[in-house]
Design a protein around this nucleic acid. Sequence first.
DNA 1: TTGTTGGTTCACCATATGGTGAATTATAAG
DNA 2: CTTATAATTCACCATATGGTGAACCAACAA
Lengths: 113, 113
Amino acid sequence: MVNQQPLDGIFHALADPTRRAVVHRLLKGAAPVTQLAGPFDMGLPAFLKHLAVLEGAGLIRSEKRGRVRTCHIEADRLGAAETWLSDQRAIWQGRADRLADFIESQTDQEHEI
Amino acid sequence: MVNQQPLDGIFHALADPTRRAVVHRLLKGAAPVTQLAGPFDMGLPAFLKHLAVLEGAGLIRSEKRGRVRTCHIEADRLGAAETWLSDQRAIWQGRADRLADFIESQTDQEHEI
DNA sequence: TTGTTGGTTCACCATATGGTGAATTATAAG
DNA sequence: CTTATAATTCACCATATGGTGAACCAACAA
């Protein structure tokens, strides 16, 4: 996989329930690693990998103060994904000939009857 | 990976530039497999796996008539992802204390000065 | 019937992903 | 100084992912 467009990382990061839950949690406020990891049934090393994926995708940011690392959400990166999706919807909605697909699917069904 | 929530599959499917391009293409109208595969620099077997991922996620549908399989977009599935994202944005925007994050980050910087 | 075309299946491979337990480091707290 | 806590690193493992080439099947065309 040579390609590494930003959307690749963002969508990949969001394709995991643990990571989505972390995003969801962080939207309500920053939190340190161990506290974030609390609800999940996995070891710290595994959880850190999830955080690394999120941070690599730019969805979160983290700073270490003393021995505690605090994670923050980077909300505008979510916007990048949202934008791509709404662009696609715009294309879909803008189609003049969407009816063709419907008719086609009906024709298919007739053959099955 | 035991968990298989619908969003897992949808986001995973969208985390690949080839698959996003296929979605983009199909939004403009249905197309047969070989024609869809045309622009991409990979063999048919590899491309079929991408289609399988998209179909598994419910993002596309396909029917075979004669020897040609025609693929259609399933646009409402995109909506599921869009909805999750806009829900998250709602949480973010609804936060009363977003300022706290900003102040915290400023405090961090002061210590570095 | 003989190609040719559109898809499919198969066996295989390299790398990525998501997890583990154990050892390690660094900062706080007693 | 000693110990507990927060996080990190390391070696390792099973499975998933994304690709290949070659063989194959089914349908249309000549």
